[in-house]
Design a protein around this nucleic acid. Structure first.
Lengths: 320, 320
DNA sequence: GAAGGGCATAAGATCAGATTATGGCAATCG
DNA sequence: CGATTGCCATAATCTGATCTTATGCCCTTC
């Protein structure tokens, strides 16, 4: 049988107190309880640890050997408690966050700035750029703690983005049509997607691609895809030069706005739901929770939001 | 509440095993038992330690922090067990032995030589010269583990030498009268103490002094004490020169024998009982016990001996 | 969609471990 | 000295921690 570490700590108290009785007082116990622990320890090791005399107790050589380890163990327990307390109070901790580029350029910095302003917070945030699918992958592989993703609204036929994860809705944003400034007059009045069936288009590379193609098909045409890129700076540069048209979400335009590009709402262009996603249970990790909270706070008023979606029947027990 | 160290170790097993179920198997327990331990730990710290998913469990940041300490604690427990095992098997350990000079010159070295010959014994023995009273003092003050002492036999009126200590009778030795070689013829035939009433005497400084005085008084004279020393080499040198006569125990004569000194038995000179003394309970400390055993073995046949005297109602529990 | 693996929960059962009560020894004090 | 006090060991209970048994739910896999 291995040594019971609690008995090691009891031994330590006893020796420091100088007697079993005094040690028991320290521990808030009675003397026979401590006596039996010491005896059990001696039994299991087969060596006397204490010499008993009328004025108390003195450790044998074996007892002294155990004492050293007992003190070390006690120190580790204290340190462990202190560290977790720091993690709990956010004095320490690190959170790995994966977000899509335009969020990383707008929403995330704004949120983290708020976090920094709180006194006594020592969180270390590691950011990672990743399109939604990759970000969720990173979550699944424990390479990220929070994924900030978007999902096309009304895209009910598509499989849910991150089944089995916890979703924190942050905000919604519109997707806007981009036209060269030179064509703004021409594009006055309410517009439809079908009006642009004959244009050259710039499409994204990820799910935006398929989604936009789908929307065009529903509008009755097959878009002429001239360029493909996810980079919203590139997109705007190309549009500004009149090489093609495209659509971008608000966050991308907030991050970078080319003066020669005009934006127009389009009825068929469904918006984005921006969501923070984490592994089930991770939202009750203090550091992760703090980042989630600050993300949500940063989005307040910027779009509809809801409470954290119920995690899909998590197996994580509540911490009350 | 402080962290329960056992739960720290359980956490370690679980994380290493990769799942609570596998951890439980390792520990020989059922899964719900381990689950509840983990939950209790999380409750007491207020922080999730594990994220549960379908394929097992991964530690949170707090869990990882605890893991480091858990491993350290486990290492200390192992080391503590190993050290006490070494102490138990005498691969390690130190014993402090206080003995009177002539024992230190004869009996003790012989005994320790036997100890050294046993393979795999790594005991460190620290010797200290001390007359019986001082040796027992050293015992009482935890400055020695074993005291090798002598006591005048038949000295029933004297207070017991070391009340409250454990006595291991080792051997008995005679005390012999010392005469200058030049007077041997003159001292032929059976002798009595009274025959030397008019001599110059060399007496010891410690209890030997009072004892010998007492014996002389019983023999009907008051000895003329010319010199006082406990040093048996000095005593013999003085006797050899015919400056005085004295008496010494066998062990002193075994340690050093001056050729110009003759020894004669004397009926009234009571012998010494040589005893090893230790604190109650110390005789079940392996290292101390080993030295006691080897001391007794070295005395086998050299004088009457008995089993260890029952310790005077020790408060030390038996280790079976 | 059936099976398997993993976790949480509830309800018993049991054993460790704490308390109360008592006795004996040693040291201290009137 | 005898009484008192402090210390430890032991025995006998008793309670509460904790381990098990028995389920249910979820996810993943075939």
């Amino acid at each position: 049988m291995a040594i019971d570490p609690r008995r090691l700590l009891i031994l330590n108290e006893v020796v420091e107190a100088g007697s079993i009785t005094a040690g028991a007082r320290r521990l808030g116990w009675t003397q026979p309880a401590v006596t039996s622990h010491i005896q059990a320890l001696e039994q299991s090791l087969g060596v006397p640890l204490l010499l008993r005399h009328a004025s108390g107790v003195t450790p044998t050589e074996a007892g002294l050997a155990l004492l050293n380890h007992a003190k070390a163990v006690a120190a580790h327990l204290d340190a462990a408690a202190a560290e977790t307390a720091e993690l709990k109070t956010l004095q320490r901790g690190s959170v790995r966050l994966a977000a899509f580029p335009s969020a990383l350029a707008t929403l995330v910095p704004a949120a983290l700035a708020n976090l920094r302003q709180v006194e006594g917070i020592g969180l270390e945030i590691r950011l990672n750029e990743a399109e939604p699918a990759a970000a969720v992958d990173a979550l699944a592989q424990n390479e990220a703690d929070i994924a900030v993703v978007f999902q096309h609204e009304g895209d009910l036929s598509a499989p849910e983005l991150a089944p089995g994860f916890v979703h924190w809705p942050l905000m919604r944003e519109d997707v806007l049509l981009l036209l060269p400034q030179t064509r703004v007059r021409q594009a006055a009045g309410p517009l439809n997607l079908a009006d642009f069936a004959d244009e050259n288009w710039i499409f994204g590379r990820s799910r935006c691609h398929d989604h936009l193609v789908d929307l065009c098909h529903r509008a009755g045409f097959s878009p002429r895809i001239k360029h493909e890129t996810d980079d919203y700076v590139v997109v705007q540069a190309l549009v500004a030069q009149g090489l093609a048209i495209s659509a971008l979400p608000q966050s991308a335009l907030a991050a970078h706005r080319h003066p020669q590009v005009a934006v127009r709402p389009l009825a068929e262009l469904t918006g984005h739901a921006i969501t923070a996603v984490c592994r089930p249970g991770a939202d009750s990790v203090p550091s992760v929770r703090a980042v989630l909270d600050v993300l949500r706070a940063a989005c307040r008023g910027r779009g509809r939001q809801g409470p954290a979606q119920q995690p899909p029947a998590t197996r994580q027990p509540a911490l009350t």
